[in-house]
Design a protein around this nucleic acid. Structure first.
Length: 400
RNA sequence: GCGCAGGUGGCGGAGUGGUCAAUCGCACGCGGCUGUAAACCGCGCGCCCGGAAGGGCUACGAAGGUUCGAAUCCUUCCCUGCGCA
């Protein structure tokens, strides 16, 4: 059940709540990613320290982790066993793995690419900082059919994905879609979108649990007419929420064009999720366009890689200059990491490959992003979103 | 004093006549990470010029020597570790 509490006066931003059987998700919210049923480097006992309000796990991974030898899903755990009874959860459908194990590997890119657009590839090579874009069909591990996707010998399709997600029992679940590559052409992207639309109906037909909100997913790559067509179609179906997925093109501005095209055709009354996004500036841009929830690995992955977020910009804590810096990671941060380790100490933990390095960094970054969302909600309610945005983006100079 | 082992770039440690400015790891520097293939990946790392390709200079304890050519072979010296006196 989704309720909008306050709409921003100037932008399309909204603050609201999603009521779930396992708690209330105040929106805008950021789902912390725990793909395998565990947030990497963050022990479940420490999740409460991080202000986490929503966790995302993955259908494909949990299915692989818990299915029995015959592939039966009877043994899959309830997701609340993994994250706690009072933690709202969302599961991805496995649709992204169709891409990341498939064309993502073949094209050597993620859903965002820095390589030149396909239409320019004819006149100059597809390169990014000297790397040449090279398609490697031999690396593609997925075969896509009308029924679904074969991951080598494992088959996952829309109906099975929904059955798995019902078994896992997350509060928010996602339709099984095909995410395309930024280097797919119009024809392929259109075909994949239409396939995603057919799968969307199957997902709806399969879905029986009324206590879960099933989100449909808008596809269509970076093509305006496809995005609009997809948004209209998905919006016309009785989904409880709408997610924007798929390739977002090859530039930052392009990704918000995509978002605008899609959102303009969505009902205001349903919650909107932006899949796999994002960085700090992405959050502000997207919230202003009317996005309610996000999920992204950035806070946790970058923590493990030693990038510490602060309101004054990020710190690459592994760098030698922090060796003797006894100051706090972030001056006024209330997180438990900032209470117990200095920059120098965290630097040492990383250098010695101590497991506590990732854990401390993860606690801090997750807290930072969750706190950012809290402040964003408050700002919407108090009509000071532009001020907050400026405050956060100044040090990052629009780069993060 | 004798015996044995050894001295290579910030460190560890390859190389043992040309393809060596010298494999590799660490450290260091720079960049990246967007529904987790990722506690990871890429690049740089003697000095100088160059965006690069490339070029020049100085280098494998020191000094001599052999050779067309030496980090690699020979001589002497210096130093370190271990063992025996």
């Amino acid at each position: 059940m989704f309720k909008i509490i306050k709409k921003d006066a100037i932008t399309k931003a909204r603050a609201g709540i999603i009521e779930t059987p396992h708690g209330i998700i105040e929106t805008p919210a950021y789902a912390i990613v725990g793909t395998h049923g565990q947030i990497k480097c963050l022990p479940p006992s420490r999740i409460p320290e991080t202000k986490t309000n929503l966790v995302m796990a993955n259908t494909y991974h949990l299915w692989q982790d818990f299915k029995d030898p015959k592939g039966e899903i009877a043994n899959l755990p309830k997701i609340q066993k993994l994250f706690g009874e009072n933690m709202p959860t969302i599961t991805d459908s496995g649709g992204f793995q169709v891409f990341s194990h498939g064309f993502g590997r073949e094209h050597g890119v993620g859903k965002l690419s820095n390589f030149f657009p396909a239409d320019q590839a004819k006149v100059r090579p597809l390169t990014d900082k000297g790397r040449t874009l090279e398609f490697r069909p031999d690396k593609n591990l997925v075969k896509i059919t009308e029924e679904g996707a074969f991951f080598q010998d494992q088959f996952l399709g829309p109906a099975l994905s929904i059955q798995i997600q019902e078994k896992l029992g997350a509060d928010l679940i996602l339709a099984f879609d095909e995410c395309t590559s930024p280097h797919h052409d119009y024809e392929y992207t259109k075909a994949a979108m239409e396939r995603t639309h057919r799968w969307a109906r199957i997902c709806l037909q399969t879905h029986t649990r009324k206590d879960q909100i099933l989100y449909g997913i808008v596809q269509g790559g970076e093509f305006k007419d496809l995005r609009e067509e997809s948004a209209k179609f998905i919006n016309s179906l009785p989904f409880g929420g709408i997610a924007i997925g798929g390739s977002l093109g090859r530039s930052r501005s392009g990704m918000f064009d995509v978002l605008r095209w899609a959102i303009s055709h969505l009902d205001e009354s349903r919650p909107r999720h932006f899949l796999g996004i994002g960085k700090i500036d992405d959050i502000f841009e997207s919230v202003e366009l009317g996005i309610d929830t996000f999920d992204c690995v950035i806070p946790t992955r970058e923590a493990r890689h030693g990038r510490i977020y602060t309101k004054k910009g990020h710190l690459d804590i592994t760098k030698g200059k922090f060796q003797d810096d006894q100051s706090k990671l972030e001056q006024d941060c209330q997180c438990t990491t900032c209470d117990v380790v200095s920059k120098a100490e965290l630097h040492r933990l990383f250098k010695s490959k101590d497991l506590l390095a990732g854990e401390n960094a993860t606690v801090h970054n997750v807290y930072f992003f969750n706190n950012l969302m809290t402040e964003t909600r408050e700002a919407i309610k108090n009509d000071r979103l532009p001020e907050l945005k400026k405050e956060y983006l100044q040090p990052f100079r629009g780069e993060n």
